[in-house]
Amino acid sequence: MIISAALLGVIAVILAWPFPLVLARSDWPARSPDVALVLWQTIALSGGMSMIGSLLLYGLVPFGNALPQSVIFLGDSLRSGTLPADTRFTHVLALGAAILLSTHLLLNLFATFVRAERQRRRHYTLIALLSDPLNGQPGMRVIDHPAPVAYCLPGAGHSATVLSKGLLRLLDADQVRAVIAHERAHLVQQHHLVLLAFKSWHSALPWFPIANRAENAVALLVEMIADDRARRDVDDRTLATAIALVGLGQQPEVLAAASDGESDEPWISSPERALVAPRVYRLMNQALPLSRLATMAVFVTAIALALAPAIVLLRA
C-alpha cells in the first residue's frame, strides 16, 4: 500500500510539473490541436486522481494492506472512536488533505458552473432585448455597437451567436461566414464545458503554476479547433484576415475612437497572454497535422496516463 501511495505520488509530480511544461513548450499542439486537447484533459484528470489517491493510500496505511479492507476498517475505527496503535499524525493529515482537496475541487467545479449559468441567463436576457436576428437565421443575433465583436453564448435550449454591427462593417461576406463557422463549432462541440473545467481548476488551485499554463493552453487549443472547423467552409487566408482584422479592431485606442465618446468608461487593454497571433501564424503557414503514427502515440500515452492511477488504486 505504501508502495502504491509512492507510485501515485510520483505520477502526480510528473503530471504536475515536467510533463505539462514540455507539452506547453512544444510546437506540435498547433498542428493537431484536437489531439493536444485530449492530452491536456488527461493530464488534469489523471494528475488530480493521482494526487488525491496518493494522499488517501498513505493515510490508510495503518488501517490495512488493501484499499477495500482499510476503508472498512477506517469506518469501524471512526465509529468506535479509537485509531490503530501505529497511526501517526502524518497519516491523519494525509487523510484530511485527501478529503479536503477532493471536496474543494468538486465544490469549486460546481460553483464555477452555477455562476457561469447565472451570468449566461442574465446575458441572454439582455441580448434578447438589445439585438436583432441576422437575416432571420435562428440563433444569430446582431447587436448595434461599433466595436467589432463576435461571440457565442452557449446554453441548453437557448444558445446564440452574437455579432456586432461594427464587425459586419469591418468584414466582407466571406470573412463573416468564417466567423460564424468558427462560433458554431464552439457551440456544437461544447467548448465552454472544457474551458470552464480548466478555469475552475485554476481558480481552485491558484498557487499551482501549471494550472494557469493549462488554462491558457486549452483556451488557445479550443480556438484552433474552431478555426479548423471554419477552414472547411472558407479558405485559410480569409479566416486569417478575419482574425487579424477583428484583433486589430479590438485594441483600446481603436475601440475608443470607434465608440466616439459614447461611453465614459475607458477601454482597458486586458490581454496578458498571446492567443491571437499563433492562430494567424498557423493559418498562414499551413502546418501539416500530426502523422497518423504520432497521433496514435499521443492517444496511447493519454490512455496510459488515464488508466495508470486507476490501476494502481484498484490493485492497492
Binding site: R120, Q251, S270, E272, L275
Partner: peptide, 16 residues
C-alpha cells in the same frame, strides 16, 4: 467572461 466564448480575445501590443 466565463459565460461566453469569444471569436477573439484582446491582442497584446506585440501581437498587434
Amino acid at each position: 467572461q466565463a459565460a461566453l466564448v469569444r471569436f477573439i480575445g484582446g491582442v497584446t501590443p506585440q501581437e498587434a
